[in-house]
């Protein structure tokens, strides 16, 4: 795999951004059911997907998850991030190229929902009970709302002057 210096630099920048956003966001107390939060770090993953590519976005995502766990989290939070992140990443990989750039917010909403579905499955496995399913309607709503918000931010960044740093032209 040939990888250009420019790509490596961008991956580094997005990973650093994502990690900082993630750690800052983790300082705020998560409110309410199931530890719902905005998931702003996903903006960096999505912008990386748009600016560099799917595979590179995956590198940004998994580096961020591993580094966040090393700096900050616990094994359980690492597991939750890993499962939720993988679900969101896979669904966004599938959808991103099939949707118009003006519908990034829809792709992001799907990402948010699948992130939460993944975390719910992880919670089910860790707790060994199917009662976690009672959280499903809450997590579906929060996945859509937070996904749309982070998606709109991503869309705003794509349609901004920042796009001149993008390695993908379309």
């Amino acid at each position: 795999m040939k990888i250009s210096a420019k790509k490596i630099a961008l991956i580094g920048v997005f990973t650093a951004l994502s990690l900082i956003i993630f750690i800052v966001e983790a300082q705020f107390p998560t409110s309410g059911i199931g530890g719902i939060k905005l998931g702003l770090a996903n903006v960096a993953t999505m912008v990386a997907m748009l600016f560099i590519g799917r595979r590179e976005a995956g590198i940004v995502l998994y580096l961020r998850i591993i580094l966040a766990a090393a700096f900050y989290g616990t094994f359980v939070s690492f597991l939750f991030s890993l499962v939720g992140g993988t679900f969101a990443y896979l669904v966004m990989c599938l959808l991103m190229c099939r949707f118009d750039k003006k519908q990034i917010w829809v792709v992001s909403a799907f990402g948010g929902v699948f992130h939460n579905v993944g975390q719910l499955i992880a919670a089910g496995f860790i707790s060994g009970t199917s009662m976690v399913i009672t959280l499903f309607p809450y997590l579906l709503i929060s996945g859509i709302v937070t996904g749309v918000l982070t998606g709109l931010i991503t869309q705003r960044l794509w349609f901004s002057s920042l796009r001149k740093y993008s390695l993908r032209k379309e």
């Binding site: 107390p29 059911i33 199931g34 530890g35 359980v76 992880a122 919670a123 009970t129 976690v132 959280l135």
Partner: peptide, 21 residues
């Protein structure tokens, strides 16, 4: 702990690492 106080039907608090519901 962050889940806060619950009072209504169907509401749930889950502590996944401790398998507590």
């Amino acid at each position: 702990v962050n889940a806060g106080k619950i009072s209504g039907g169907g509401q749930t608090i889950i502590c996944a690492p401790h398998k507590l519901v």
